[in-house]
């Protein structure tokens, strides 16, 4: 509470009643007195407030616990085969994937980009087929040109390998689980039966010329005499990204770059598959440096070409 003057100017009698009190005195008092803050701020802002649930920061923090600790790898789908266990005679269908020149080509940082991620590229391209801008970017990072590039989110800066590091197949251990993410085969414009698994309409019983048709797209007045958003209809099918979770790794070979996973993986042969530790299983207990070897010669090679 600020100190208040002993004599309030409003309590003073009028000037004509007490002429001895100088007018200037009361004025001085008024100026000295701090104006009382009666009106409080109606808006809740300032530091130290809880983060709003709908904000980007809150979204990042929510997802943080689910993000893998390590980077993933880009692999080429080679095809499917089977593996027999000679003792139990169990046949396991598996997909063979191969890593080719998989390398760390960039980092995404929380301070600069808003999240932590490893940019990984695979394959190679001839320099003459690449725009000057792209070549300049690769040269600035000190990495070779890459045919395919993808990002793998990681939890923190510890999961960012050095730029130019080669990701080898021994990133994944035999027996661990991975998530495989790839673009599915494009089916083109597909009817509702194929696209959404509808059962169609009867072949007989008076049905005429409408055996695979969509039928009704909704009720009339009861649902507002309109087609609800998201109604399943015929249209482009496939060609979109799909994730298959928790595929067990059956075999890994660093020299040939092979990763064999249990079961099927989306997409056609020769398609690019993103592999990363399964988020629904415990993280593999391996060192962060496993499977990520420093290229070593990147910077030197770059300098030698300059």
């Amino acid at each position: 509470m600020p100190p208040r003057p002993a004599i309030r100017p409003s309590i003073l009698p009028p000037h004509f009643l007490c002429p001895s009190v100088p007018r200037s005195f009361t004025r001085t008092l008024k100026t000295i007195q701090p104006t009382p803050r009666t009106r409080t701020d109606r808006f809740n802002h300032g530091p130290g407030l809880p983060i709003l649930g709908a904000s980007k920061t809150a979204a990042f923090l929510r997802k943080e616990a689910m993000l893998p600790l390590r980077t993933g790898a880009l692999a080429i789908k080679k095809g499917m085969t089977a593996i027999y266990d000679p003792t139990t005679a169990r046949r396991t269908a598996c997909t063979v994937l191969q890593l080719d020149r998989c390398q760390v080509t960039g980092h995404k940082r929380r301070d600069a980009h808003g999240y932590w991620a490893v940019q990984v590229g695979c394959g190679t391209k001839e320099a003459r087929n690449v725009t000057r801008a792209e070549r300049g970017n690769a040269a600035a990072q000190g990495v070779p040109l890459k045919r395919h590039v993808a990002e793998f989110r990681v939890r923190d800066a510890a999961g960012l390998p050095e730029l130019g590091s080669i990701v080898t197949a021994d990133l994944f251990q035999k027996g661990q689980y991975v998530d495989a993410r790839a673009d599915t085969r494009g089916m083109g414009f597909a009817g509702g039966m194929k696209r959404w698994g509808w059962s169609g309409q009867p072949a007989s019983h008076g049905n005429s010329l409408t055996h695979r048709a969509m039928g009704s797209s909704g009720a009339s007045q009861g649902s507002g005499s309109r087609v609800h958003p998201g109604k399943h209809m015929a249209g482009r099918m496939g060609g979109e990204q799909q994730t298959v979770q928790c595929l067990r790794v059956l075999k890994v070979d660093k020299e040939t770059g092979i990763v064999v996973v249990h079961g099927a993986v989306p997409g056609p042969k020769k398609g690019i598959v993103k592999l990363q530790d399964a988020i629904k299983k415990p993280w593999p207990e391996v060192d962060l440096s496993v499977g990520v070897s420093k290229m070593g010669s990147t910077a030197e090679a770059l300098e030698s070409t300059i």
Partner: peptide, 25 residues
């Protein structure tokens, strides 16, 4: 603009990994 040479290719070293896997089986 300098271009960094790409590392060794595993697909060239092993073009048909499925055949290798099948043959070992």
């Amino acid at each position: 603009i300098p271009v960094v040479p790409p590392p060794r290719s595993t697909t060239k070293a092993c073009p048909d990994p499925i055949a290798i896997l099948t043959n070992t089986q």
